[in-house]
Amino acid sequence: MLPYLFKRLLLMVPLLLGITLISFVVIHLAPGEPTDLQTQLNPEVSAELQQRLRAQYDLDQPLMVQYGKWLGRLVRLDFGDSFSQDRRPVTAKIAERLPVTILINVLSIGLILVVAVPIGILSAVRRNSHFDRLTTVFVFVGFATPSFWLALLLMDVLGVRYGLFPIVGLKSLGYDYLSWSGRVFDMAHHLVLPVFVSAFGGLAGFSRYMRANMLEVIRQDYILTARAKGLTEKAVICKHALRNALLPVITILGLSVPGLIGGSVIFETIFAIPGMGKLFYDGVMMRDYPLIMGILVIGAVLTLVGNLLADLGYALADPRIRHS
């Protein structure tokens, strides 16, 4: 096991280098530069000033030199300073956005699991029943509903008309004056709509996946054996079938690890939640190269680690893989 782990980790290094090199070149291929926002179509800026600004960001140097400098900093785990006018460290910018995004993503994946797994199992067990058809329609409606539309509708009805939920951000204006429990409640209250909306669209994929797995497993010989032993249907499904049907879920969870730090621009924009999606989008629009690269590197590392974890988890959960 250990040599395998070591080999996998070692292989990640050239892979990561390749990813960063390609990302770096590609984002520099896009027309436009970080200084454009300040200097383009601005009558106050002369050509000489433009050159000076470019030099301050090293933009006047060859691409490979810029990459080398960036890589040199990365090795020391320094993502550099953002190219936006505030020039703050990239790590600080990511650090202030990350907790919110992770919180919402964890909650929404949790909600998806809690709802989609039972739906998938029941649909499989009662295949072609009314329940199966109804939930199928429900999850596909969820899948097809544009999240921005659903969000605005819920905000208008539940937020403005009935005043049940706050519609903007994650904290009330008076948050700082609340007690500890008041703060938790306030945040939870704000989280209801965003988490519901972000989970709603994800139900379909997961529940269909679960249903297909379950159907696959139920047909196996060992389920027939279990039934032949005279086990109750509950025991057959919950103990024997479910465990095996859940195996591929590990893969999906592994693959969603990088998704934890990625937010959705549309969703964050509508709920006015300062998360990673908006940060990345704004970074791209401003051609804030260090910020873009910082987020991409974190995403790449998490993807690689997620894959590794999924493989390891698989091995732990399934003796057939462990022994082969």
């Binding site: 605005l152 905000m155 005043g163 204006l173 924009t269 509508i270 006015a272």
Partner: peptide
Amino acid sequence: VLYRVIPDPSTMFLEMQSGG
């Protein structure tokens, strides 16, 4: 004076109507 950041104009309008 409090500036609240609300990127989407529709959301901003809803928040205005809800008194925020």
